[in-house]
């Protein structure tokens, strides 16, 4: 693989890191949302909601910043994907709005129909957001039709095919597992035991999806493994991924919920790293003509801008990490409902 450690490459991986950060953080709160309707009792649902209450908003900021960074560093990728996936992006936006509104408004009124309505909105929106994100990733693997002017020339329904749907379902299963483990970590007593019982099921669901996706990728999209053939050391990522997943039930069994959660984070990171190395140096593969693909060079901003943004990122990232960690530290421990809760 041609690999030069230049600004374009750095920004490819920085955006990858933002994506990983988003998936790990918003991943668990989307996962909690996906499991939400399986919890029946109102107080337990409120505990589920409040386990993500103080942090979901901040987690979504990773998506916003990722979008901003993509716009700035690779404007052609941003423009092509966002206009090409127009209807899907609009659907995603509506779901993000519904979800935010549902979290905010659900517990404001005591009526059962009111709460049930928002609970359904919250859960469906969470599942659909994860699914749409997965379908988008799927399309970046399969490639989409582009013309010489970097414009998308396919249709909305062209984005939906068995493979991209499979990646979407896999994403939902991944976040469900991640969310269940987070839930175990943040709850106690009956709800804790219930969620603990679900972790294994979600792991099995995820592993089935994961293996199916991996097999179909190997069979139908072998370009994804090109770099791994050339640089066998990268296979470590695949091993790390499996070990991290295997470690989850082990830690749950030992009652070390936090370590189970860390393992789950590690498996998400490894999975996305596999994806990133698979498509590198392309962002958007043109399925009709490889020459039209958007890569880290023909889709990028100028060297000057990439450089300025790197300085901004280097100044900003320590702060972001410092207060992200402080916030999670302040809100560590089990959820307790009080009068400021959702």
């Amino acid at each position: 693989m041609e690999f030069t450690f230049d600004l374009n490459t750095i920004w490819f991986f920085l955006i990858g890191i933002l994506l990983i950060g988003y998936s790990i953080l918003d991943g668990f709160d989307l996962g909690v949302g996906a499991l939400h309707l399986l919890v029946k009792d109102d107080t337990e649902r409120r505990i589920m909601l409040n386990s993500i209450g103080p942090v979901w908003d901040g987690n979504e900021v990773w998506l916003v910043t990722g979008g901003g960074a993509l716009f700035a560093a690779f404007p052609h990728v941003y423009a092509t994907v966002f206009s090409g996936f127009y209807s899907a992006i609009m659907l995603l936006l509506f779901m993000l709005i519904f979800r935010a509104v549902a979290i905010e408004f659900r517990s404001k009124r005591p009526m059962r129909w009111w709460r049930q309505m928002w609970d359904v909105a919250f859960s469906i929106a969470s599942i659909l957001i994860a699914f749409l994100a997965g379908v988008a990733v799927g399309n970046l693997i399969t490639g989409i039709p582009l013309n010489a002017n970097k414009e998308f020339i396919g249709s909305f329904w062209g984005l939906i095919n068995p493979y991209t749907v499979l990646v979407g379902v896999t994403t939902v299963s991944l976040f469900m597992m991640h969310g269940a483990i987070y839930g175990v970590m943040k709850t106690e007593q009956a709800l804790h035991d219930k969620l603990r019982g679900w972790v294994n099921n979600t792991i099995i669901f995820f592993i089935i999806c994961y293996i199916t996706t991996t097999m179909s990728t190997l069979i139908y999209y072998p370009h994804m493994i090109q770099h791994f053939k050339e640089v066998p050391a990268l296979f470590v990522l695949a091993i790390l991924n499996m070990l991290a997943i295997a470690n989850i039930p082990r830690e749950i069994l030992k009652g070390k919920d936090f370590f189970a959660f860390l393992s789950s984070c590690a498996s998400i990171a490894a999975l996305l790293a596999l994806f990133a190395f698979g498509v590198f140096p392309n962002f958007v593969i043109a399925s009709n003509n490889p020459e039209f693909s958007l890569n880290i060079y023909n889709a990028a901003s100028s060297q000057k801008t990439l450089n300025i943004m790197l300085i901004i990122a280097l100044i900003g990232i320590p702060f972001v990490l410092a207060y992200t960690i402080s916030i999670y530290w302040i809100f560590r421990g089990k959820v307790k409902l009080n009068n400021m809760s959702y």
């Binding site: 716009f71 700035a72 404007p75 052609h76 423009a79 901003s301 801008t305 900003g316």
Partner: peptide, 12 residues
């Protein structure tokens, strides 16, 4: 993108 993006990224 090259110009506007930097400001947007800084905002983020």
């Amino acid at each position: 993108g090259d110009v506007f993006g930097s400001a947007l990224a800084a905002e983020g």
